[in-house]
Structure formats: structure tokens, C-alpha cells
Amino acid sequence: MKKSLIALAVMVASGAALAQSSVTLYGVADAGIGKIESGSGGKSPANDASNKTEFLSASKMNNGDSRLGVRGVEDLGGGLKAGFTFETGLDLDNGAATSSAFWSRGANLWLGGGWGRFTMGREYTTSYDAGRAWELTGAANYSVISNTYGWAGAGSRNNSQFKYTSPNFGGFSAMIGYMLKADNGDRAKWDLGLKYANGPIGVGLGVNKVKDGKTNYALGGKYNFGSFALAASYNQTSSGSLRRRGYSLGGQAKFNAFTVTLDLTRDSKNEIGGKKFTNGVLEGKYALSKRTFVYAAYLRLDGDNNYGIGIRHNF
């Protein structure tokens, strides 16, 4: 009887511990057909940039990369939580991982509470986080902002990053990321993001700098009128001592399950490409459900024409 009571107590204690922890499997499946002229010069499994009409997966003209991820969180008590995220990209051309680093999309550990969250590892850059507050396509692969100015030159992810995200104060939050000198090619990097997202308004400022490099920045805002939304931004990215600077203006209209977006950029300075370009993306999406939609997009990028048609399912 005593042994049975002990076993029951262990089971109850284990159940309580499990109730405080959770692990979630999630992912995206995205594939389609199209042609990518930008960056062409031969078949590349990573971006399908062959300048021929072909199957598209994990490419510039997919809405997003297919992926499989696992994330977990444990309640440590007193408002303190610990968690992790591991995420890999998948190429539906052949089922291969999209990078030699298997968890290339995310590999991090975090600790959080009422004071905010501190994350260590491969994670989103704060400039990317700030840009998502106002970018119209939902940070799609074919976003004209990301393809022209690269999320304020920071890209979407950093390796070996220490990142702090503040609590949300009525829609306002701040983020700071830092990479040590030894972890970034002997040049330390900092990345600051400020974001306001409340009701119809979304505003984001991303500023980042690598030691001895130029300061990159992007300031943008979006206002949602209900069925319509407008967004604008000003951006600067750099490559060494060369800079690319310009602005964007775009609009979005929703008609029940159908959404159409037009977003344009115009260079005011382009030392990197040596020529000022007007770029743009035209996107149409039709929601089949809350988790699945079909899309078609045309991207004009630095004189090249790219298009894609596909379907995306989130799970």
C-alpha cells in the first residue's frame, strides 16, 4: 500500500511538472512555379535563380521558406520563464535542408519575465523585427523592402547574438542586439530596434552598425484604414564605405478573402549598384482558410523581372 501511494505521488508530481512545460512542433509548406532573373547564372537549389520557368521552393519568389521548427517554454515560477527555438529550412524541390547548418533559421535559448526577454543564439535581427511593424507583404521573400535595402542592411538573422526585448508598453517596445568582436569577423556589431504597434498604427525604427562601417537605418510607418492600408519608409544600407539610400511608398486593399498589395522603392543614392533604381512588388493573395492561401507576385528588382505563383500552408 505504501509503495502504491509513493508511486501515485511521483505520478502526480511528474504531471504537475509537465503541466508547467510545453513543446510545440510547427512549420510552413510553400511551393509554386515562376521565374527568377535576379541573381541568375545557373541553377541554385537555394534560390532557383536560373532565369527559367520552373518549380519554386525556398526562393526569392516564394511567399516564404518552407520550414520545420520546435519551440518550448517552461514556467519557472514567480513570473520567470525559460524557452528555446530550433528551426530548419526545407527545400520542397528535393526535401533537402536549405543550408549546411541544419538549424539555420533559428537556434536560441531565452529567459523572460515581466522585465522583458533575453535571448542568446541565432535569432531575428532587431532591424528586421522593427521593419515587420510596417512592411506590407508580411515580410515575404519577395518583399521589395528586404530585396532592395535588406532590412536596414542587417538581414533577417544574426549568429551568436545577445538580444534584449523590452515588455510592451501600450504598443511600444524596444530591442537591442549585440554580437561580440570574436563572433563577427573581428568586428563587433550592434542593432537597435524601436517599435510601436497599436490599433491601426504600426511604426518601426531599425538602426545598426558594424565596427568601422557605416550606420544603417530604416524608419517606416503604416496606417490601416480597415479595408485599406498605406505605408512609407526611408532606408539606408551600406557595403563597406558604399551606401544605398532611398524611400518606399505602398498601399494594400482587402476585399473579403482577397488582398492586393503594391509597394514601391526609389533610390535617392546608390553607390553600391552605381545607378538609381525604382523597384516594386505587386502581390495578390487569396485566403482559402486561416492557415492556407494562394498567391501571385511580380517583383521588379534593379532592372530584373521576377514572378511567382504558389500556395502556402502554415501548421
Rank of each mutant, 00 (worst) to 15 (best):
V73N: 12
N63H: 13
G280L: 11
M175Q: 14
K211D: 12
G280S: 05
L180Y: 10
L262Y: 13
K181I: 00
A13D: 10
A58H: 13
I145D: 15
A182S: 15
R291M: 02
K2P: 07
L180D: 12
G185N: 15
K43R: 10
K195G: 05
K269N: 12
A174K: 08
R105S: 13
S173L: 08
A29S: 07
N270P: 00
R300W: 04
V10F: 11
D91I: 12
A9T: 12
T119A: 10
G64T: 15
D191N: 13
F258V: 15
A152M: 03
R300M: 11
Y247K: 05
G308T: 09
K52P: 00
A140N: 03
S59G: 10
P167W: 11
L205P: 00
Y124I: 04
D212N: 14
Y217L: 02
T125D: 09
N224C: 05
A13M: 12
Y26Q: 09
G213P: 09
G310Q: 10
P45R: 08
A29C: 00
F84W: 02
L80K: 08
G250V: 00
S143Y: 03
S233E: 07
E87A: 00
R122F: 03
F172G: 01
N306V: 06
A140G: 13
L56D: 09
S233A: 14
G246A: 05
L264N: 10
N224W: 07
V144H: 03
W151K: 08
M1W: 11
L109A: 15
N47Q: 09
I272T: 06
G150A: 13
E135T: 12
S143I: 06
M175L: 12
N314H: 10
G308A: 11
